[in-house]
Design a protein around this nucleic acid. Structure first.
Length: 668
RNA sequence: GGCGGGGUAGCUCAGUUGGUUAGAGCAACGGAUUCAUAAUCCGUGUGCCGGGGGUUCAAGUCCCCCCCUCGCUACCA
């Protein structure tokens, strides 16, 4: 069997690892561990993705160097992964010597082969900050719908896309001054050169069918040259032969896979070229989220090809994570970081739950927190661990911890568990972890049924000692096989079980013989139940970090009265209507632009067209619920609510302040 | 607007090339049991398979229209 090299996508060094990231790292880690415990030569690499403007800016804001920021985040990431039992063989950084050398090599080889060209590009430049602004760092008025405070590349309200130069009233997101247009020479990678190769590669079986279909859409649209340079100042690698120009972060990020492995190879005396030059000697697999498909299935293989390196054997994409059926949300407390999970819960709960849901497809997976508690407790504690828990006691009480001297007749159970293990192995191999978990749980059910039928508690009462010892010995042997099959998912529990059963190892073998005559350690809980209180605490903690105000409101839901605290949680403000217009296509809505003083301006879609015309409203003072969650509507996003009295039949009267009030004042 | 993925029991999901009374796990309910971390075992129910129309001897499964949802993507004004 050829060795395999596996990677997970590199997390950006600009933030914490959260439960969404972990889908991928857990998925990959399970796959890697599966291969390793079956004796396959398998290496797992990852690194922090450290370059780009956002990191440079954040470091600047914190008053530290990008290097210092990146080093700190690296430490956090490594700790999070370690604690989630993600077993990288090496975790590197794209801000490393290896990565610099390799990125330059990839670039130069492509340049020599004629795959690079330059062109002049007009860019937004902030003179005050002294840098070219990426799209996300420019805010302004959408040229399409007039929505305020939109990003430079697309409008979140009307979803129009445009160039930053088209944005009206553009200003730098950092300092608020308006940027100027400035021409700049950019370097491009001629992706189109690789179309024939890419068309073939994407159909070579390297990709899931859904992904290949998606790619064919992109082929239809045509492959455009890729802008791979950024102007300084930029935190990254300077492009050889192009002073002041830097590699765009997405160029050197995937090269980080190579760099990470190289760093490891150097320490272990392994030949780099064997892995990255010759496609016949080693298999290379990348696990990614479907959002970065474009980079991994077009740019990356093309760059490798153009530079004379081998291309990946496979790229496996997974879906996104939802929590309780919805996108992770800070205000719902479901934007949960790895660390806040770890402060409350055992990482193996999540590993099992994800495993139980992961397929080889690209569907999103849902972390339903109630389901999570039930599922883990029922399967892990109730079925698997309980098997040992309910039988080990007898072995210690009556037989000094010793299993039957010879493995008894078990009606072929042990053998059938081993046979089934082959099927389960193929599920793992295919990344159909959910099927594997279901199959393992079916075996756990059979093992529990066996115990039930033999009723060791009755055997003990009736002093049928040989049968008692035999029954428990069988159960514990079956338990061992279950843990072996779960080992890729639950490495910590596997290790505890190894110690408990006094084993050399608990690796996956098809030639395992039953344990007999050995003395086992006293049973101690190999996994404790998920405490739903802890889950609640985790959500509360995540909630607390963002919207402490909401708390009071929740507590009062049932009561008929509310506390002062609750009421004060509603931020009512005086606002002046500075613009008002009818919303095209809507019967009841008016789009209002409000001046809220210190809070700036807000767009509110108000359902008051039945009672007011735009002309009535201009300049009027109203009361705005300023901290209402923004509401996405068919006609745009409404950022608050204007108070009005109504008779329930459609006639409305706006509430306004008496004289003396000015925009931004709090109403209380 | 276009393209693509979803929409199946309370929850999370399976459902092969259309073929018998639509499945699993968890939850729920009834019973058994008490060795075990209120664990286990036996039994039970449950579904307008998003809506409507069509093809067919037969459709969750194929075709058309619509609704909701999630992505990607584009234009008019």
């Amino acid at each position: 069997m050829r060795p395999i090299l596996v990677t997970s996508a590199l997390p950006y060094a600009n933030g914490s690892i959260h439960l969404g990231h972990l889908v991928e790292y857990i998925q990959t880690d399970i796959w890697v561990r599966f291969h390793k415990i079956r004796g396959r030569d398998c290496l797992y690499f990852c690194a922090d993705d450290t370059h780009g403007t956002p990191i440079m800016i954040r470091a600047r804001n914190e008053g530290i160097t990008p290097e210092a920021l990146v080093a700190r985040i690296h430490g956090e990431h490594v700790a999070d992964f370690h604690d989630f039992l993600i077993g990288f063989d090496h975790y590197h950084s794209t801000n490393s010597e290896e990565n610099k050398i390799l990125s330059e090599e990839v670039y130069i080889a492509n340049r020599e082969a004629g795959h690079i060209h330059t062109a002049s590009v007009m860019q937004a430049y902030c003179a005050k900050d002294g840098l070219f602004l990426p799209d996300r760092f420019i805010r302004g008025v959408c040229p399409s719908c007039g929505a305020l405070d939109q990003y430079g590349d697309a409008c979140e309200v009307c979803s129009a896309t445009y160039s930053p130069l088209e944005l009206k009233e553009a200003r730098c997101a950092l300092c608020g001054t308006s940027p100027e247009e400035r021409a700049s020479e950019h370097y491009f990678f001629k992706l189109g050169d690789f179309e024939p190769f890419l068309r073939e590669w994407t159909r070579s079986g390297a990709l899931q069918v859904q992904m290949a279909n998606k790619l064919s859409e992109w082929f239809e649209e045509g492959l455009k040259a890729w802008d791979i340079s950024r102007d300084g100042p930029y935190f990254g690698f300077e492009i050889p032969g192009a002073p002041g120009k830097y590699f765009y972060v997405w160029l050197d990020a995937p090269v980080g896979y190579m760099a990470s492995s190289w760093s490891y190879f150097k320490q272990h005396g392994i030949d780099f070229d064997r892995y990255w030059r010759d496609p016949d000697q080693v298999e290379i697999y990348h696990f990614i989220g479907k959002d970065i498909l474009y980079f991994h299935t077009l740019f990356w293989p093309a760059m490798l090809k153009g530079a004379g390196f081998r291309t990946p054997t496979g790229v496996f994409a997974h879906g996104f994570l939802t929590v309780n059926g919805q996108k992770m949300s800070k205000s719902r407390g479901t934007f949960i970081t790895a660390r806040s999970y770890l402060e409350q819960l055992d990482p193996e709960y999540l590993r099992y739950y994800y495993a139980a849901k992961l397929t080889k497809g690209v569907d999103d997976i849902d972390l339903n927190l109630d389901d999570f508690v039930q599922r883990v407790n029922a399967d892990m504690v109730g079925k698997v661990v309980n098997l040992a828990s309910r039988t080990a006691g007898f072995i210690h009480k009556h037989f000094q911890g010793q299993l039957s001297a010879t493995y008894p007749d078990d009606q072929g159970l042990f053998q059938s568990f081993l046979t089934e293990a082959d099927t389960i192995a193929s599920y793992y191999q295919e990344r159909d972890f959910s099927k594997a978990m279901r199959a393992i749980m079916a075996l756990a059910d059979r093992a529990n049924r066996f115990v039930e039928e033999k009723a060791p508690w009755t055997l003990a009462k009736e002093k049928r000692m040989v049968e008692l010892q035999d029954t428990c010995s069988v159960a514990l042997n079956l338990f061992r096989l279950l843990v072996m099959q779960l080992h890729p998912v639950l490495p910590a529990m596997a290790e505890k079980t190894r110690v408990f059963l006094n084993l050399q190892d608990i690796n996956w073998s098809t030639t395992i013989v039953p344990l007999a005559g050995v003395t086992i350690a006293p049973f101690s809980p190999l996994m404790v139940r998920v405490d739903s209180q802890k889950v609640q605490a985790m959500v509360q903690a995540s909630l607390a970090t963002v919207t402490p105000v909401v708390d009071g409101v929740k507590k009062e839901e049932k009561g008929e009265t509310i506390t002062m605290e609750t009421f004060m949680g509603v931020d009512l403000r005086v606002a002046r209507i500075t613009q008002a217009e009818e919303v095209a296509g809507a019967d009841k809505l008016l789009r209002l632009l409000l001046d809220v003083g210190e809070l700036g301006s807000r767009t509110v879609l108000a359902g008051i067209r039945g009672s007011y015309t735009p002309g009535d409203l201009l300049g009027r003072m109203v009361v705005l619920v300023a901290n209402l969650e923004a509401r996405k509507m068919k006609f745009g996003v409404s950022e608050g609510m204007v108070l009005a009295a109504g008779d329930g039949k459609g006639r409305l009267s706006l509430i306004g302040p008496d004289e003396g009030a000015s925009p931004g004042m709090r109403v209380k």
